[in-house]
């Protein structure tokens, strides 16, 4: 929390453009519960972005975050390595997941959503639930945390869009099969891209299976102050940062969420284009600290 920020104890790529960071943040580590997130800012000119906490180690005082390099800030973050610093880390924010004994729980995650789903699955299993995990990815090398998920699940199904690993298809297909097979499911947790979460919600709605999603709207402060993250749930405006980020999937207005998330697409595109065109650009601070070579395993 000194002038340099929060130091990175470990950094490694899990997949191309997907990097795991273990960050020293003792107060956050001590308080973190599954489902909560932090807001980070990398440098003095940086934006504030929310990232879900994938794990924490209160003894070491570290939290784990997993970052997919999509926009300027996440791509810049993914250039940082062990020994570098993140200027600001604040949290844990949001309500923790509702962890108790439900019975059989199906945890469905798509892509980097697995980083969010994993700690919740772990807690649900610890609470005595029978945890079935469906891991989805576009292709084999984008699949993350498979071993970790296996360790906290009673059954695991891996699905890839292109069939390069596990079964070929969509996560919703596997969910369909489970439901059709007569499996009694008490809770479904879906975390991933909006279309995936929406599709899961539509599968479980007719069967009346309680379904929870973790939302990722635009945020600034993360403490309820700006209202940028508001989303319609059951016809009421809710702030994902303090009322969520988890909500009843059958009550969420996914269409509205998707539209609001597109609000800064043009600015995001502009910032990314500029960033990619001048890879050496950016404030002195980051240039100084970053090792610019990309160490992603290819």
């Amino acid at each position: 929390m000194g002038i340099e920020g929060f130091s990175i104890a470990e950094a490694r790529f899990l997949a191309p453009d997907v990097k795991l960071f273990r960050v020293v943040a003792p107060r956050v580590a001590r308080k973190q519960q599954p489902g909560q997130f932090v807001i980070i800012r990398i440098h003095e000119h940086g934006e504030r972005i929310p990232l879900t906490i994938a794990d924490s180690n209160p003894t070491e005082g570290t939290i784990t975050i997993i970052v997919q390099g999509i926009g300027k800030t996440t791509k810049l973050l993914n250039r940082l390595n062990a020994g570098d610093f993140i200027l600001d880390v604040v949290g844990p924010l949001g309500r923790p997941s509702d962890v108790r004994l439900f019975g059989t729980v199906v945890v469905i995650s798509g892509g980097v959503g697995t980083a969010i789903a994993y700690p919740i699955a772990k807690a649900l299993q610890r609470a005595g639930n029978h945890v079935i995990t469906i891991l989805g990815a576009r292709t084999k090398n984008l699949l993350i945390l498979e071993n970790e998920a296996r360790a906290v699940s009673d059954e695991v199904f891996v699905i890839t869009d292109d069939g390069s690993y596990g079964e070929k298809g969509l996560v919703t297909g596997k969910l369909d099969a489970l439901i059709a097979g007569g499996k009694k499911i008490d809770l479904v947790l879906a975390i991933g891209p909006i279309p995936m979460m929406r599709a899961v919600a539509e599968k479980t709605r007719p069967c009346g299976i309680k379904t929870i999603v973790s939302l990722n709207p635009i945020m600034v402060d993360g403490t309820g102050m700006c209202g940028g993250c508001r989303v319609q749930v059951a016809g009421r405006s809710q702030f994902a940062c303090v009322d969520g980020p988890e909500f009843d999937a059958h009550e969420v207005d996914f269409d509205g969420l998707a539209k609001r998330n597109a609000m800064y697409r043009e600015s995001e595109r502009q910032a990314l284009e500029q960033f990619v065109s001048e890879p050496e650009s950016g404030p002195e601070l980051i240039r100084h600290r970053c090792k610019l070579e990309d160490v992603a395993p290819r």
Binding site: V220, C226, G228, Y264
Partner: peptide
């Protein structure tokens, strides 16, 4: 549609009026 808090926070705290020199849009 913004709350005044969000609009002003973006402009004042995050210096969005200097985008893209500052990252917050």
């Amino acid at each position: 549609v913004y709350s005044a808090n969000e609009f002003l926070t973006r402009v004042n705290l995050m210096k969005a009026y200097k985008f893209p020199e500052y990252d917050e849009p």
